[in-house]
Design a protein around this nucleic acid. Structure first.
Length: 806
RNA sequence: GCCGGUGUGGUGAAAUUGGUAGACACGAUGGACUCAAAAUCCAUUGCCUUAAACAAGCGUGUCGGUUCGAGUCCGACCACCGGUACCA
């Protein structure tokens, strides 16, 4: 790795300009400037121990280029960075090495900042935020309390992964394959009280907002699918011989005449309600126990193999056929979706069909068009209702509509819009997170912490090991737990759970606009000036979680009048992964990780920045290849070697004038469209052309420096200074092109014969069809091909080609 | 299974609305410079036939279609990557 590379000295040049930019605060955004504002945002990092990796650099480089370009275009640019520093890896590292997470976090942030500087990023670090700073999480807690005040927070029971041996709650990641990460014993589902944020109340707003969201289709589609809106009906099925009913959600109310049984989730309450009526409770309980033990992993494996148990002694009535139908419990019905109960229509739902075949239940055809001896017929675009009373003869869509009207008029049910998105389980049994600002009083019950008592500080203690009971480590800290009730002033206990990793990142982009404000999360004036975010870039992996969560919080803050805009992001893009040289995802365990600091030391930051952009399509995954790096370094060295050729005299300028203007246009457009790889290729071409000349006109060379500056700013500043400029390149304006200069006077016309290239000729620009034809037919090669065959057709594309069909 | 994406030289990859496939770069080969090497510069570099081409043929995952003309559009399929998971 210590190969000697001649050319410019990147070490001295890069350090020099990094110092100078810092000294002159070149990248500080100015509040209320006269210039138009531009807010470019990248996802803030989790400051892990290894510091910045190649993936971070790629994620930041797009808007780094755009920010530097925007500044030259005359915008007041805010391009901030901060740290999302709460989280499990830090806590685990701290436990293992017996260092406090605060110390670990501070160290990691310091080294990350050092890496940022060494790569020459133009972040405004005077605005940096740290989610673990009490002055920051004070407002994270404040937002939680506001949501509590507006009934968007509730407490409810849910099932969590639990290891009975370790007595600890596990995350999905810690219980993969159904066994505990620590001891290997089987994980069970345990019911637990959980704080929920009612994000489903914002489902419609989040969906609606996507319409005004500038992003590649894949990003909007993923969010749409995550929200998972479906349209249907809720309807009631009476129980036989009981004054009671089962309510189901269905997207196919039209098929109700074909409902021959019902299935409810194992957890459904009706089972306990009728435990004296049901006479096979032993079998039911056994199945419920078994379902509880089933992990996510097993459920996936057993997907096709449906099992269930019939409730003996309890039947439902199909309200339309008036026939009694059996009720089953089966784990293919989820308690968390819809009503936890379904009407099973085996003729027109594949899962119900499989279940009916297994348990030998009747299958009734109510929509004509399929072959029910083979599979359920589920096509909603075609098929006519049969065996369905008043629906007979209707199409599926008509029948759905008619049925819903009927249900509502007869008071049997109603239209229902259902979402797949679930409310957000908002607590974790962990130390290194924001304490949830709630107090339990033995007399007054659950009490929110008064706003003026915020922040509820995380106690800085030495021991924060997880507890045996599965409670948060905070439950062991006496000084934290005990407090007084805000209402009756009597002794009370604090909530000991903390917020999830996603909390602090759900509003950080607002804090950048006013990072030091002690009173409010950000002042209205500054929010109005800077917001919303003009361009947000980040990873695809955050599109469904972080993006949805943060949009939810922002909409809420907008609704309560704290933030002046509903949708926080005007535009969102996502970078592709950089894979290891072996084409696999970079990871420590695979040993294919590339360390940016080593590359910077050997080749320089500018080379690394250029290569990260040149490596391939920015939005797609691509493998790392160290050889490509050398090409980028050679490109920068070539520019360095051009310096002696630079002259003030204008002769020679005509030779590459068109190229210069074309390059300005091409590079400009490519930057805006994230096509950095082709932008660099265009500049390489221009540099190669300049290399052919004896002299390079100063103006042309300076255009090149400006275009390249967003990518290789250190080198460009240095060369700019060598050209006897007193001001910095960061303060220069972005080059423009003259559309007239793009036009060449001669173009190459391709001559096709029967669609195959047979000849080429140079011709003046915009020659008309007749002239192109005439000149083409004069050509010897063309005549040889045609000989005496008749010409059937001639197609001319101006300035491009002529196709002669014979 | 479903949804999304991708498939182009030895390699990373380019290619406005269908209009010269392989830009740019890496690597490789030959040459110049050098005592030599590195660096730099020049030339060649999709495959095949050929002594060589100024020549012909083939070529963008597979098969078929539309068109004067298809990497690009349409239909069927295959492979890989990512997301998701019994959502009624």
């Amino acid at each position: 790795m210590s190969e000697f590379i001649p050319g410019y000295n990147h070490k001295t040049i890069e350090a020099k300009w990094q110092e100078r930019w810092q000294k002159h605060a070149c990248f500080q955004a100015e509040n209320f400037s006269e210039k138009p504002k531009y807010y470019a945002l990248v996802e803030f990092p989790y400051p892990s121990g290894v510091g910045m990796h190649i993936g971070h650099m790629r994620a930041y480089m797009s808007l780094e280029v755009i920010s530097r370009k925007r500044r030259m275009e005359g915008y007041n640019v805010m391009f901030p960075l901060g740290f999302d520093a709460f989280g499990l890896p830090t806590e685990n590292y701290a436990l293992k090495h017996n260092i406090h997470p605060r110390t670990v976090t501070d160290d990691n942030i310091a080294s990350f900042l050092e890496h940022i500087k060494k790569t020459g990023f133009s972040f405004d670090l005077s605005r940096k935020v740290d989610t673990t700073d009490p002055e920051y999480y004070k407002f994270t807690q404040w937002i939680f309390l506001k949501m509590y005040e507006h009934d968007l927070v509730y407490r409810s029971k849910t099932y969590v992964n639990f290891c009975p041996d370790c007595k600890v709650v596990l995350s999905n990641e810690e219980s993969q394959g159904g066994s505990c990460d620590r001891c290997g014993s089987d994980v069970v589902q345990k019911e637990k009280d959980v704080w929920f944020l009612k994000i489903t109340a914002y489902a419609e707003k989040l969906l609606e907002g996507l319409k005004h969201f500038d992003s590649p289709q894949r990003i909007a589609t993923e969010q749409e699918k995550w929200i998972g809106k479906s349209f249907g009906a809720e309807m009631r099925f009476p129980l036989k011989d009981q004054p009671d009913y089962l309510e189901v959600f269905t997207t196919r109310p039209d098929t109700v005449f074909g409902a021959t049984f019902m299935v409810i989730a194992p957890e459904h309450q009706i089972i306990d309600r009728y435990k004296d009526t049901i006479h096979n409770m032993d079998a039911i309980e056994a199945y419920r126990q078994q379902a509880k033990l089933k992990t996510e992993f097993e459920r996936v494996q057993l997907q096709k193999d449906k099992s269930g148990v019939r409730l003996e002694g309890l039947m439902a009535m199909n309200p339309f056929t008036q026939r009694p139908i059996p009720i089953f419990i089966a784990d293919y019905v989820m308690i968390t979706y819809g009503t936890g109960a379904i009407m099973a229509v085996p003729g027109h739902d594949q899962r119900d069909y499989d279940f009916a075949k297994k348990y030998d239940l009747p299958i009734i055809e109510v929509i004509q068009g399929g072959d029910l001896s083979q599979a359920a017929f589920t096509d909603i675009e075609q098929g006519i209702l049969i065996n369905s009373g008043f629906l007979n003869g209707l199409s599926v869509k008509q029948a759905i509509h008619t049925m819903i009207q009927h249900l509502e008029s007869q008071n049997l049910g109603h239209e229902k819009i259902q979402y797949k998105m679930k409310d957000w389980a908002f607590n974790r049994q962990r130390y290194w997170g924001e304490p949830i600002p709630i107090i339990y009083c033995p007399t007054c019950g659950i009490q929110p912490v008064p706003y003026e008592d915020l922040p509820v500080r995380l106690p800085m203690v030495e021991h924060f090991q997880p507890t045996e009971s599965g409670d948060s480590p905070l439950a062991n800290i006496e000084s934290f737990i005990h407090c007084s009730c805000p209402k009756c002033k009597g002794p009370a206990r604090r909530e000991t759970d903390t917020m999830p990793q996603w909390a602090g990142s759900s509003w950080y982009f607002l804090r950048y606009m006013d990072p030091k404000n002690p009173e409010v999360l950000a002042s209205m004036d500054l929010l109005k000036y800077w917001g919303p975010i003009d361009w947000y870039n980040g990873g695809m992996e955050h599109v469904t979680r972080h993006l949805i969560y943060s949009r939810f919080w922002n909409h809420f803050l907008h609704d309560i009048g704290v933030v002046p805009f509903g949708e926080p992001y005007l535009k969102r893009t996502a970078q592709g992964l950089i894979l290891g040289e072996d084409g696999e995802k970079m990871s420590k365990s695979r040993g294919n990780v590339v360390n940016p600091l080593e590359i910077i030391s050997e080749y320089g930051a500018d080379t690394l920045r250029a290569y990260i952009l040149f490596i391939g399509d920015y939005e797609m995954a691509t493998p790392w290849n160290e050889n490509g790096l050398k090409g980028c370094r050679r490109f920068l060295d070539k520019i360095w070697r051009l310096i002696p050729k630079v002259v003030d005299r204008p002769e020679q300028s005509d030779a590459i004038e068109t190229s210069v203007h074309k390059t300005i246009k091409g590079v400009n457009d490519d930057y805006e469209n994230l096509k950095f790889n082709t932008a660099i290729a265009k500049m390489m071409t221009l540099v190669n052309e300049m290399g052919q000349l004896d002299h390079v006109r100063r103006h042309d060379f300076e255009v090149l420096l400006k275009l390249l500056n967003p990518i290789a700013p250190h080198l460009c500043e240095e060369v700019w200074e060598m050209l006897a400029h007193k001001t910095m390149l960061v303060a220069e304006s972005w080059p423009t092109f003259d559309p007239e200069k793009l036009i060449e006077d001669q173009v190459e016309i391709v001559i096709n014969i029967n669609g195959k290239v047979r000849d080429k000729m140079m011709l003046e620009v915009d020659a008309d069809d007749a002239r192109v034809t005439e000149r083409a037919l004069e050509r010897e090669k063309v005549r040889e091909w045609i000989q005496d065959k008749p010409i059937r057709k001639i197609i001319v594309v101006t300035n491009k080609l002529i196709n002669i069909v014979i």
